[in-house]
Write a protein that binds this DNA or RNA. Structure first.
Lengths: 189, 189
DNA sequence: TTTCTAGTAGACCGATCGGTCTACACTGCC
DNA sequence: GGCAGTGTAGACCGATCGGTCTACTAGAAA
């Protein structure tokens, strides 16, 4: 594979940024060619299924990283408050302190790809479930409350990202990060 | 104007639904023609500035209605808790219990139109300001806390709409409505 | 009745869309 | 060195994109 101009990683990183910023419909093949430096035939060679396969691959990759690099922190041994703090920090970084949009939001406006939709749904539910499990197991919240709080935490983050994008104000997003402990843990823990 | 096949109201309602559901890039002129029943020349006759002018007109109209039919409820005389309850009910209805996406989110992924961007920013800020004013004047919260709570309330609503769209779960949105009193009012009021 | 304006229609335009195909170059293996 | 597989390139395709222009119709006002 010495023939490759750009590694798979590089290409996927570029694609991720594009889909995050422009969404599915706003990310054209022309834009992708310009941003990756690869011509269409190269892109189709790597992603036989075309634009949809790029989106699916990006979604899988990001969801995987989110789960393994970020949400997995919640399950590590050690102080729950510290774990949550670290997760919050990772979240802040992942979303560029609120500057980067969420693929779950930006990739699901176009509904033509059941593959993308299903992955987005699964990733979102996994995220919420991870928070709920933490809130119950480590945060000491009763099951039903843990789930509601998990949903609210994710909702606040997603909403904060929307507000950030529309108005440039990142305070709601950052506050949603800071509020994770009081949402996912019982007072005094 | 007896020649009109469809009233301005009808056309704008249709456009609103399209932009809400598909966003700007996903709403093509073909889609608009099919949905409105008007051909392109008719649409261009009514909206000289084309697709962008449609989006701007929709945004202005919805923002105006939101302000006058919904947010203005917050300023009426009478019991603050009752006013807030009514506002929440209007919000629930406006977003179809969470089934309908928010134009602020869906129309701002495409950034080519400064006119749309500016209007979305202004509408969002007006919304937050209205909540903050209510929280301060009627909810008895100190100014800085009132603003933060207003932002959080809007953030929760917007995030709830994203979650609803991605996963079909409307509980976070509905809970955000129900949480308006505890967010925007001091306990005991 | 005539004129003017509003509104709709059909045809057309250049640009861009996502996708396809053939050809060539490079690399690694036998 | 030859072959197969990987990867990039250029040209091309039909469809769709947003937009434009000419023509016709309907309705209101003079």
């Amino acid at each position: 594979m010495g023939l490759q101009k750009f590694s798979e990683n590089e290409v996927l990183n570029t694609l991720t940024g594009l889909f995050r910023h422009h969404g599915y419909d706003g990310t054209s093949l022309s834009l992708i060619m310009k941003a990756t430096g690869l011509v269409k035939a190269s892109l189709y060679h790597r992603f036989r299924g075309g634009k949809e396969e790029m989106a699916v691959t990006v979604m899988d990759r990001v969801a995987g990283e989110f789960a393994s690099d970020l949400l997995a922190l919640l399950n590590e041994p050690g102080d729950p408050a510290e774990r949550l703090r670290k997760t919050g920090e990772r979240l802040r970084k992942f979303y560029g302190s609120g500057k980067k949009a969420c693929l779950l939001d930006t990739l699901t406006l176009n509904r033509d790809s059941p593959a993308v939709q299903a992955r987005a749904k699964a990733a979102l539910e996994f995220w919420i479930d991870s928070f709920a499990r933490f809130a119950e197991d480590s945060g000491g919240l009763p099951r039903v409350l843990a789930m509601a709080r998990a949903q609210d935490a994710v909702s606040a983050l997603e909403g904060g990202l929307v507000i950030s994008r529309v108005s440039g104000n990142r305070a709601p997003f950052l506050r949603a990060i800071e509020s994770l402990p009081e949402r996912l843990m019982r007072p005094g823990r």
